[in-house]
Design a protein around this nucleic acid. Sequence first.
DNA 1: TTTCTAAATTGATATAAATCAAGAATTTTA
DNA 2: TAAAATTCTTGATTTATATCAATTTAGAAA
Lengths: 190, 190
Amino acid sequence: MTELEQSIKKYFGTLEQTELQEITALFELEKLKKGDYFLSADCCCDKLSFIQSGFLRVFVETEKKEVTQWIGTKGYFITDLSSFIFNKPARWIIQALTDTEIYTIKKSEYIKMKDFIPKWNELEKLFIINCFSTLEDRIFSHLTMSAEERYHFFFANNKELFNQVPLQYIASMLGMTPETFSRIRKQITE
Amino acid sequence: MTELEQSIKKYFGTLEQTELQEITALFELEKLKKGDYFLSADCCCDKLSFIQSGFLRVFVETEKKEVTQWIGTKGYFITDLSSFIFNKPARWIIQALTDTEIYTIKKSEYIKMKDFIPKWNELEKLFIINCFSTLEDRIFSHLTMSAEERYHFFFANNKELFNQVPLQYIASMLGMTPETFSRIRKQITE
DNA sequence: TTTCTAAATTGATATAAATCAAGAATTTTA
DNA sequence: TAAAATTCTTGATTTATATCAATTTAGAAA
């Protein structure tokens, strides 16, 4: 089973092997160079991609600063969910932090799935609620944790990120400045 | 059209009047007294309710403190979404802050809807993504705003809450202490 | 490699927000 | 209504984190 198939199973739920193959056949390999945009500001996000390798940064520019909302990594899906589902302008910019390989399904193909996978609606719902739960956890982390605690919590679950992408983006995503991030980091090695 | 019908239309999408009536017929009026629990810790949340009047607090107890995650108000739906959909233990406690009237649909009735409303799956998906977007906005507010900005932003959109529920819960929900909340409040009147 | 650019670190300082403690105001209960 | 309980406010202080500025380090480009 390919990694894509495994992840579809993991995120979307249990499927017959034949269904799985029908689905994965709709995904096409795309290669992004470092710095390439997966999604530009104000576009509608008409695709959902599985990250095979590399890192994608989800961010937005405010008057004051650039804010990283998330960093997509190998084995996860990436899209602007509201934009993808509702066909409305994307709220995020998504850019490759490294050379990146993704498997992409276009919206036009995606909507066909409910025709030949009977339980597709159900699977899609589970996927979206998983996304929802992740955000609930993140809000909770902001209501209950200090910057240091958020750092440790995130580090425990995402070690691989820390030596592969600029740390300032992780700092932003965790809601702290690069300086604060750096100081927390220093304490650990001491 | 009842308020319940209006809200179903608003959150779940456009429906035929007959469909709307079929759906609303599945909801039953419940009355909660102040302090009553809508959902206790570790239970599975087997219902989705529309708030007709009153206020419900969604919170959790941590070792250090009690954290309010949300306050449900008139015209909105309330449930523990992941628990309701996945039948897993709830992560939140939900309690009435005032006497409250809700229209409740049980999970067992809810799952019947997809049988007689053809596009139910689609509507449900839209509902969940709306919830998702709301959380995205909230995370963004923690990444970009100070306590004071979060206060003003929330106040602008939820004035009615500020003289009807204990302010400490709003403070908690916005990620600040009651003291900080009180001081921000004071500045405004000066 | 050398040069240039961006990222990370560090120190000094300022600011925001938390904590602690007391008292006032409000709400609930008897 | 009076008493009790809870909530809110206020001041003093501490702590966490941001900001500013300078320097070092790492990475990219020539």
